[in-house]
Computed example of a mutant assay.
Amino acid sequence: MIVLLFLICLSASMVGSICGIGGGIIIKPLLDALRIMEADTISFLSGCTVLAMTAYSVGRGKLNKGSSHLDSGRSFPLAMGAALGGVLGKQLLQAVLERSESASSLGFVQAICLLFVTLFTLLYTLQKKRIVTHNIRKAWVCILIGMCLGGLSAFLGIGGGPLNLVVLYYFFSMTTREATENSLYVIFVSQCMSLFVSIVSRSVPVFASLILVFMVLGGIAGGMAGRSISQRIQDSTVEKLFVILMVVMIGICGYNIYQFSR
């Protein structure tokens, strides 16, 4: 099972790094579909894997300043909002878990939310050229947007996923590469806060430490490979890969909703 988890995290993080969606959008629903762990455990491990991958991607971007697309006027307020959203999202996750009859009920709620998010993202992406975008600069608006993205990231355990890109396209008129880098930055900050809250509140689920090690290693290796590949391909190729991925994830989410409802 450990080898399977490593390969899933490796491939998911590689694709997630290329598309700027963090990898959790693949890891979380795919592990839910395999039913090898409880939903809350999968959320936590997926979040840690995404954190490791984005830490590498953001760190490399900071070191390579010449290719950075982070704008302190917008990226920093977005990250501040994501940090607060990460705390709120984690609290919401715990509240839903406490009120659920089982971890499967939590998985059902997450699968429905993820299905709508993914479907909305796909529809927006297909119609993107017809949609008029904005170029928001106000810091307080950036903070609010980051809060929403960070909260969703922490609650679903997917690292923000595809919705980040849609929001960054629409509100900030970012290019694909700008949105990708800023998305990973927001994911990194929100997952840091989510992990911090889990540790402080002692809500870390029980799991074998070796599983976390191999998932994190897969996340980092996938992030390295994805960053290298993304520098060699065109934006149009990234967008095509993104659309294909969304279609696949909609199918997996639908399957998970069916499984959790039984």
Rank of each mutant, 00 (worst) to 15 (best):
L149N: 08
E178C: 01
F196D: 01
L34H: 13
C148T: 09
D40N: 13
N256C: 12
Y56V: 05
G61A: 12
G157T: 09
T121Y: 08
G73Q: 13
A154H: 05
L212C: 03
C19T: 06
V216R: 01
M14P: 04
I199R: 04
K129L: 08
F44W: 10
L210G: 05
K240V: 04
G86C: 09
D71C: 13
E101Q: 12
L168R: 02
E101W: 02
L156M: 15
M53N: 09
Q110W: 00
K90L: 05
G222R: 02
G223I: 00
G23M: 07
P77N: 09
M37H: 15
V243N: 12
Q234L: 09
T49Y: 04
I199L: 12
R35K: 14
V186K: 00
Q127H: 14
L63Y: 12
S43T: 13
E178R: 00
N164R: 02
L7F: 14
A221T: 14
V166S: 06
G161C: 08
A79C: 13
N135G: 13
I112Y: 13
S105V: 07
W140Y: 12
K129H: 15
Y170A: 10
F214H: 04
E239V: 11
L45P: 04
F44P: 13
S100Q: 06
S67P: 00
G222A: 10
G47M: 15
V166R: 04
G157S: 13
E181K: 03
V206T: 14
Y169L: 02
F155E: 09
G159V: 11
S75M: 08
R74M: 12
C48F: 15
A39F: 10
F171Y: 09
K240Y: 03
V96Y: 11
G157I: 13
A33E: 06
L126Q: 15
G24W: 06
F6Y: 10
L78W: 07
V87H: 03
L119M: 07
R35S: 14
L93Y: 14
L241S: 11
S236Q: 08
L45Y: 05
G146C: 06
S153V: 03
E178N: 01
S105G: 13
H69N: 13
L163W: 04
Y185T: 00
E181C: 01
F76C: 10
M80K: 08
V243A: 10
S183C: 01
A225M: 14
N164M: 09
Q110F: 02
S43I: 10
V166A: 11
V216Q: 01
M249D: 05
L115R: 08
G226Y: 01
S173N: 15
S261T: 06
L78R: 06
I18K: 07
I21M: 09
F207D: 12
L7Y: 04
N135A: 06
S46P: 08
V58N: 03
I42P: 08
L106R: 06
I229M: 06
L241Y: 12
S190D: 11
C192L: 15
L4I: 10
F207C: 10
T49F: 04
L168G: 06
V96H: 11
I131N: 08
G150C: 07
